[in-house]
Design a binder for these strands. Structure first.
Lengths: 318, 318
DNA sequence: TCGCCTATCGGGTAAATGCTCACATCAGGC
DNA sequence: GCCTGATGTGAGCATTTACCCGATAGGCGA
């Protein structure tokens, strides 16, 4: 039936194979016949469709245990909103578990008709969220990055969360044109003195909704791994009680931002504790529990998307 | 089907197994270990999760060939909206193919903030649509059935599309409290003279959006199979040129409603040709091509959700 | 033009999956 | 008390899938 098509692209073919497999329930053998390719190619197309995120799978059932955890999180931390995904077992990846729930949460805001300014952080969890979301037309909103988009080594691949979302929803987006962390406080101040930067900062500070990842500050902190902070500086901040960071801003176990280390040179805007607007953390994983707990305590975040084991650990702590 | 016997723990377990399998990518063996059950049970839970629609799969890529068909359908029939799903191959089931697309279409309307009156037909395609849709809170809308909900044999299982949707979106719904087809025109008129019926009819006639299946009127017409029309009457209507029906109202190959047969005794409201509001047909299958074509010609429907082979057949015909 | 390098292909195979069947359990009726 | 049908369970087995590997073709620089 697709014999008349001039040249279906690889993506088209993969999408079709995935469709036949997951929706149609055909075997890969049947797909191979249908598409006129070998079994092996059909198998590759199917797995490619999945790997490239052409196929979206969602769970349409709220598991009781997760609902209970959500209610308890809301109660214990006074949250406006909590979503708990089922865990993926011992070897499971927290980000993978929460990505669909985070995407649903983002989509919820995107589908609101009134124009919103949506402030966004970065990180693996945010990236997972983007990959899991579907395309929606929502040009009424504005997407603003809370964090600088200039990395020390110039690589920007890590910071395209805002761009990728904007791409999927066809909404205007505002990257923060400053270094994530400048070499000196002076340079950081110089950047922030620029008119265009101030405009983006003002927009970010007025964000109606904030979605951020939460980073931990132990010895394998992402800030260290990605080269934003030196070992010595990490030691200094740890000594001062650092347990986590949101949008690059480091805080202690009570969720108070520190006045030292990289916090003196971090670009972009910090999420103010105790906002009345939604400020939702997207984070899961045993190592992040102290960081999430601190951010919840001081209400840097007033909403949370996490997974089952992390939720349990947070509640055990309180 | 299992709506009446709620088994929360079983559902939870199935949902969890499906989650681990489809989202987590675990093998059934690992799931069995994780959940502490036998592999066979894990397998059954996974397949149950799929069968009961706990797991939703959607294709997040518009295949080029389908987009082309959509554009061509819109152009050729002056449609406001057309959606074409990839076909499912020779043995494929059209309803299964279009269910996700139809669900997405319905969800699009449901997510609109302004209150809508949504008129709905029945049939396998509509039923598939409901099963494929996710739960959304949309209490601002009203769902009204276009077709009577009293079957000749009293069974109502076929007519709970509106109820099921209302269930999923927690919106008020208005069944049409008349027989689908009354034994005599007089009885039908008597029903329609009742105050409450007139209110529902008025609501249905003012519907902002209409979603209907399209039935065919050949010798294996659903109206005959379900006992709404006798063989003799079907013959009579076929002789008069009947090729299809929408919400029980039979029309000829030009999409003109007939003035004979069951049309004299059909309850509910007929979809007026040439409405300016969206009137979307949900239908696929080779046997329905003449019926769909007729409905499109007279603009009983001005939008269409169908699958690839049906779309091609419709275009070949024009 | 040659030769290398990379991506893809198809065959083969071990692992994973789903299906059927025989049996256990249990509630309800005679 | 015993039958009986419905429902669920585990084992075995055929089918299907995922992955490894050598072969091959096309791109690209020398």
């Amino acid at each position: 039936m697709s014999r008349l098509d001039p040249e279906p692209s690889l993506h088209d073919e993969a999408a079709r194979a995935g469709w036949l497999y997951y929706v149609g329930g055909l075997t890969q053998d049947q797909i191979a016949t249908e598409l006129g390719v070998s079994r092996q190619r059909a198998q590759r197309l199917v797995s490619r469709a999945m790997a490239e995120g052409l196929i979206h799978v969602r769970l349409n059932h709220r598991i009781g245990a997760c609902l209970d955890l959500e209610a308890e999180l809301c109660r214990r931390f006074g949250l406006g909103r909590a979503r708990v995904s089922p865990g993926l077992g011992p070897g499971g990846d927290g980000v993978r578990a929460i990505a669909p729930a985070a995407a649903a949460e983002l989509e919820r805001f995107l589908r609101m008709p009134q124009p919103l300014v949506i402030g966004l952080g970065t990180g693996r969890a945010m990236r997972g969220m983007v990959d899991a979301m579907v395309e929606i037309d929502a040009p009424q909103h504005r997407l603003v990055s809370l964090i600088g988009n200039i990395a020390p080594d110039g690589s920007a691949s890590f910071f395209d969360v805002v761009m990728r979302i904007a791409d999927k929803v066809r909404a205007p987006h505002y990257p923060m044109p400053v270094p994530v962390i400048s070499p000196t406080p002076e340079e950081n101040a110089a950047f922030h003195a620029l008119g265009p930067v101030q405009k983006v900062v003002a927009l970010a500070e007025a964000a109606d909704v904030i979605l951020v990842g939460v980073g931990q500050m132990s010895n394998d902190a992402p800030l260290l791994a990605d080269g934003f902070v030196s070992r010595a500086e990490l030691d200094e901040m740890q000594a001062a009680g650092a347990v986590g960071e949101v949008a690059g801003w480091v805080f202690d176990s009570e969720g108070r931002y520190l006045d030292l280390g990289t916090n003196m040179r971090t670009g972009g805007v910090r999420v103010a504790p105790g906002l009345d607007r939604p400020s939702i953390g997207i984070a899961a994983g045993a190592s992040k529990v102290p960081a999430i707990h601190a951010a919840l305590k001081s209400r840097i975040i007033n909403g949370l998307v996490t997974d089952e084991p992390t939720a349990r650990a947070l509640l055990d702590r309180a």
